Computed example of a mutant assay.
Amino acid sequence: MATSTTYTNARLVTPSGIVENGWLRVAGGRIEALGEGPAEGRDLGGAWILPGFIDLHVHGGGGHSAMTSREAIRESVAFHRAHGTTSTLVSLVTAPLERLAEAAGWIADLAEEGLILGGHFEGPFLAHSRCGAQNPAALRAPDRKELRLLLDAGRGTIRQATIAPELVNTNGDTGLDLIRDLVADGVIAAIGHTDATYEQAQAGIEAGARLVTHVFNGMRGLHHREPGPLLAASEHPDVVLEAINDGVHLNDPVVRMLDRLAPGRLAFITDAIDATGIGDGEYLLGAMRVRVADGQARLADSGALAGSTLTMGDAVRRAVRDVGLPIETASRYASAVPARVLGLTDRGTLTPGARADLVFLDEDLRVTEVP
């Protein structure tokens, strides 16, 4: 029989609301039971217990970049776990096909080991006009054979890919073709780094796209005569919007607006780069030189935003303290919604039978422990 551990005197954030003076029992890596009231066990002194965070979009952290090596991915995952991320989808920036294929192999190794959920190709089939910090020299027109090469390199562990749906290749392949191929392969198609109009984004969604990569960033904006991808996505109840809630990529009132526009359909992401947790200085994001100052990562040449230095723990904390969302909503956007995006039914909530991926927060909503 598996040894059990009971945590007591805690505030539990559950799908049905906050349980004050709660207790939660773990056995065999699963949540066995939870409830309210006095119980015997480890007294958490009123700490918050939230389900572990699930990051759909992270490039590195703790001084380690996913584009560098297999071990660098391992180290960056360990860094983010200490800040509450218990499930990670590793993102790769645009690079030559051979480099992407090599990195996809590292991801496959670590996914098969069980360390990560899999990989996300953020490119190379993106719009030059909205490339942001992606290497413009490595961007490619949509090509079904090249997509197949990249997916095969990931050995079935690529879970997500970002596509600009409006792109067309001279060989006849289109961004919509790539979205359909991804969906047929069981991969989540995301719309991002795109200059798509409302109608083109709608076509991408009709082709099967179910995610928007870091909404507002790297895409045509919301305009009263040109509504763009955001409004197209907001009208489809199955489409989830990634949000970088660092106060830089999205202003706090914009996050509140997104919560009203697509309630229950935001997924907090970090889009974190290797500088996260290290501090200001100069770094590389793929082939692009990045300068971090006051915690903001920008391309050294153009000043374009180049990922973030955010952790999921900080994203949740500022969602409550700065944006003004209820902690239950912030928790849902960091755990349950990304779990739903990936089709993971075994995590993302504090419910009996779920994985015991837990995060403890103090009164100030700072991560204190990831047991």
Rank of each mutant, 00 (worst) to 15 (best):
A10M: 05
V13M: 02
V13A: 05
G17D: 09
W23Q: 02
V26G: 11
G29W: 08
E36C: 06
A39Y: 01
I49Y: 04
I49G: 01
I49D: 04
P51R: 09
I54A: 09
L56T: 03
H57E: 13
V58S: 12
H59Y: 11
G62H: 08
A78K: 13
R81D: 08
G84I: 05
T85G: 05
T88R: 06
A101L: 14
G105S: 12
G105W: 12
W106Q: 10
W106A: 07
A108E: 13
A111K: 14
G114K: 09
G119N: 07
F121P: 01
F125L: 04
R130I: 04
Q134L: 03
Q134C: 03
N135E: 12
P136V: 11
P136D: 12
A137D: 15
A138N: 09
R140P: 05
L150S: 05
A153E: 09
A153M: 10
G156C: 12
G156I: 13
A161C: 13
I163L: 12
I163W: 07
A164G: 07
E166W: 07
N169D: 15
T170I: 10
N171W: 08
N171E: 14
G175D: 12
L178Q: 14
D185W: 05
A189L: 09
I191D: 03
I191G: 04
T194D: 05
A196T: 06
A201R: 04
A201L: 04
I205D: 09
E206L: 14
F216G: 00
G221R: 08
H223I: 02
H224Q: 15
H224I: 11
R225A: 13
S234A: 15
E235H: 08
V239F: 00
H249K: 05
D252T: 00
R260Q: 15
P263E: 09
T270V: 13
D280T: 07
G281S: 09
E282G: 06
A293I: 06
S302D: 04
S308I: 06
R321G: 01
V323R: 02
I327A: 00
S331W: 09
R332N: 02
R332E: 06
R340C: 01
D346A: 06
F360D: 02
E363V: 03
E363M: 06
R366C: 14
E369H: 14
